[in-house]
């Protein structure tokens, strides 16, 4: 594969993070290029969500730098951080919906607080996003009245409602049934084609998620173990990756052509 020349939107440089005596991240280096989709995989508890929170500016590294659009998140002012985040669309692992607001208000909130759109425009936009997520008729419900998978979809609708330039999805399809998650992947594929956003997706849905990935990074032992195209990833010689690939995909996935063009044909 030839060298990618697109500029990096997010760069992590030698990021280290400990909670008390537990060192979660040890010198993590990772670049996420503009318009590409980075899929982060790894076993549970290895620090994927912690890594994501560094990119969001919610956690500060003990050492190292997190650069977004070339700016070190630890060094910029609150105002600049807010400007950076205006480009973000985020789905948290626990979704973090506003639990005393209806689904409609949850999705409408970014529009109400960040744009000057009229209530009519907001309604049209929110309704469109809700039906995109197959949530028509759920607008009046409260998050606690939804199933786990429905909450995830509301979270996705909320993350995408302002057409962000960079999206962060922490396990977007965990808890969804197979056909729903396929549908979400198709939706990601379509919206990515349309909006050309940069995406960082944490997922356990290997190998399916690889279809969306331009790059795959494995987080293990507190480090990013190689960041490469999904094809290279599956054939990699690095021992950590080899073990991961073997355990998650098994031998059945050794033939690469098997599902090529999956999303195009659907």
């Amino acid at each position: 594969m030839e060298k990618d020349i697109r500029p990096a939107v997010i760069q992590l440089i030698d990021v280290e993070k400990s909670f008390k005596s537990q060192q979660v991240l040890k010198k993590v280096n990772l670049s996420i290029l503009e318009g590409t989709t980075m899929v982060i995989v790894g076993a549970s508890g290895q620090g994927k969500s912690v890594l994501l929170k560094h990119m969001l500016g919610l956690l500060k590294p003990d050492k190292g730098e997190v650069r977004v659009f070339g700016k070190d998140l630890a060094k910029i002012s609150k105002k600049e951080l807010k400007e950076v985040r205006q480009n973000y669309g985020v789905l948290f692992q626990n979704v973090a919906l506003f639990d005393s607001m209806t689904v409609f208000d949850n999705v409408a909130l970014p529009l109400r607080e960040r744009t000057k759109a009229s209530e009519k425009e907001i309604k049209a936009n929110v309704d469109e996003k809700l039906s995109m997520m197959d949530l028509q008729g759920a607008g009046e419900k409260f998050p606690a009245q939804l199933s786990g998978g429905m909450q995830k979809r509301v979270g996705l609708a909320r993350a995408l409602v302002l057409n962000p330039k960079v999206v962060f999805f922490d396990e977007p399809t965990t808890g969804l049934d197979v056909s729903r998650s396929n549908e979400i992947y198709r939706l990601f594929y379509r919206t990515q084609q349309q909006l050309k956003y940069t995406a960082v997706i944490v997922s356990h849905d290997v190998p399916k998620i690889f279809k969306l990935a331009d790059y795959v990074a494995l987080v293990a032992k507190g480090q990013v173990q190689g960041c490469m195209s999904p094809e290279d990833f599956q054939l990699s010689d690095l021992s950590e990756i080899k073990t991961f690939v073997k355990e998650t995909m098994g031998p059945i996935y050794s033939s690469e052509e098997e599902e090529m063009g999956f999303y195009e044909t659907l």
Partner: peptide, 14 residues
């Protein structure tokens, strides 16, 4: 506790 405040911040809502 339920990260709703983090969610607000990430939406660039103070």
């Amino acid at each position: 506790n339920s990260e709703q405040i983090d969610a607000l911040e990430c939406m660039a809502i103070d």
